[in-house]
Design a protein around this nucleic acid. Structure first.
Lengths: 248, 248
DNA sequence: GTGCAAAGATGCACGTAGTGTAACTGCGTG
DNA sequence: CACGCAGTTACACTACGTGCATCTTTGCAC
């Protein structure tokens, strides 16, 4: 993937200037140092000055990149959710949102992608100090999904956007999707910890699929009385997943 | 509908001791002073010392009650969500969770209950500073719902709790319910602002009902193509709640 | 009432978080 | 090479949150 000759004009693809590079490197160094201290010292047991020293920068510079230690830590979550959003955005516009979400989430069950998240989960266990920025990250992702879904609908005149209903619909759906994805992640971690083996990732995939299926089925309109009926049809990850649209 | 609120509470029926009373009064004074400053100065434009002075206490005492200004502000949201949880908990144990949630949420559409929330919404508009504690409050409510639902299931041997599925089910459902309730509140506020008239509350009720219906129907497995079909038909609270389309 | 013990409020000090500001350094450009 | 600018750094300052010692209030027994 050589982006040929794109001097400094293109917006996203080719600004490999020295300054941008240094900035990215510094940002990464800060993030790494923060994670390192989180590992060695534990949450709440190190200061911004420690991070700065570890990253080889000044305390002031840290705040030029992140507004707080929590923000630096949450950059992991942001990166994780950004890949999900990326996947979501390049789904076909006429696809049901739930199906797009399912597809995007399943893409996350990849070693390189979940590894940082899994470690973050393990490091922030029983530490409400860090929960704040995490919640913010998920909430931010919700807003992004709303924006993406709205833009998708705008490009898709087939669905009539009744100005009255769409706002509630979009916000409810996006929030629920995020909540279910989060729930799947939480259950997965509580079950598999930081295990990144193929079986563990398969479980994660299935949990994500199941949570989306629960959402799509309206949670079976009741309690999970029949483990076979509501959402556990063993649909495997890469097969087309017919996804029978269950309308009422 | 007078819920016959007797002066003391249920479990702690007789602790009107002087100490408890003073503590409650101080706590309320702090909360009031904080809200007052939020009104007069705006978010981020006053310090803990200002609150303490306004409440007639010392700065140190403030921190004996709240860990931060945000926490003091979020006490409003906590109170709001606590009433919802209270309603949820006294629903019959054999009722579907979604229906219980719907009933509990509709109870919130009461002037005395929503008034503080509505004002908080208006005061914290465009202020991400306060969003953190708000998110925490909603998240805390989610955990409470999970706990309540789990306890309910434990007392209801009819539903078999498959140890494998229930965790994902509970977390997904609870998170989705909260997300939808939140979405309804947000839409309501963006539409009605701090209007607490009967019509406005009817709209809120209907939004809450609609969001739960969306959830129960699996979001119609698609986009809201038919404004009449997806979620608005079955239940009307007590007023037709005329839907007026306004678009930006 | 008086005395006592515990709970709570207060003042003080300390470390840390963020932020404004001005000086400084290295990269990009003419 | 020199200039301009993005980015870094040092410094100062306000505010936050907490530990600790002290003082005041409350509850209780006598």
């Amino acid at each position: 993937m050589f982006t040929s000759i794109s001097p400094p004009a293109a917006q996203p693809p080719a600004p490999p200037s020295r300054r941008e590079l240094n900035k990215a490197a510094t940002r990464q160094a800060i993030s790494d140092s923060t994670l390192g201290l989180l590992r060695s010292a534990g949450p709440g047991n190190f200061t911004v000055e420690d991070i700065a020293e570890s990253a080889g920068i000044s305390r002031r510079t840290f705040f030029n990149y992140f507004s707080s230690t929590e923000a630096a830590i949450a950059s992991v979550t942001h990166g994780f959710l950004d890949t999900a959003l990326e996947q979501f955005r390049l789904r076909p516009a006429d696809e049901p949102i739930l199906e797009s979400a399912r597809a995007a989430l399943v893409e996350l069950a990849d070693p390189m992608t979940v590894a940082p998240m899994a470690e973050l989960f393990s490091l922030t266990q029983a530490s409400p100090l860090l929960a704040r920025s995490e919640l913010e990250a998920w909430d931010h992702c919700t807003e992004q999904i709303i924006a993406a879904a709205r833009e998708r609908a705008a490009r898709n005149p087939a669905v009539d956007m009744d100005g009255d209903m769409d706002e509630l619909y979009l916000r409810s759906l996006a929030g629920s999707v995020i909540s279910c994805g989060k729930a799947a992640m939480e259950v997965w971690f509580s079950r598999c910890g930081t295990d990144l083996s193929a079986e563990s990732l398969a479980i994660l995939r299935q949990l994500l699929i199941d949570s989306m299926a629960l959402l799509g089925s309206g949670f079976a309109a009741s309690a999970p009385q029949h483990p076979d009926s509501p959402a556990s049809q063993p649909l495997q990850s890469d097969s087309p997943a017919p996804h029978s649209s269950e309308r009422s």
